[in-house]
């Protein structure tokens, strides 16, 4: 299980700043999209060094059934 964390600040004027934690690579952009759907349009976006880290590996488990 991977922990994801968002630090959200809703300003006195309703503008929203979201710090996205726990994602590596471009997957954090999916989180940004989620907040875009909920709140409104993205006015500014800053990428941090973690964004340029390798993407998280996708782990699949394949089971073979005999029936």
């Amino acid at each position: 299980m991977r922990q994801r964390e968002f630090e959200i600040t809703i300003g006195p004027d309703g503008s929203v700043e979201v710090h996205v934690n726990g994602y590596k690579g471009k997957s954090c952009l999916e989180a940004v999209k989620l907040f875009e759907q909920i709140v409104g349009s993205v006015q500014e976006q800053r990428l941090t060094s973690e964004y340029y880290d390798p993407e998280e590996p996708v782990r699949n488990r394949i089971e073979q059934r005999s029936d």
Partner: peptide, 11 residues
């Protein structure tokens, strides 16, 4: 932290 975004609200 991997990214920071600022959003303008739409009501």
């Amino acid at each position: 932290m991997s990214c920071v975004c600022i959003l303008t609200p739409v009501v």
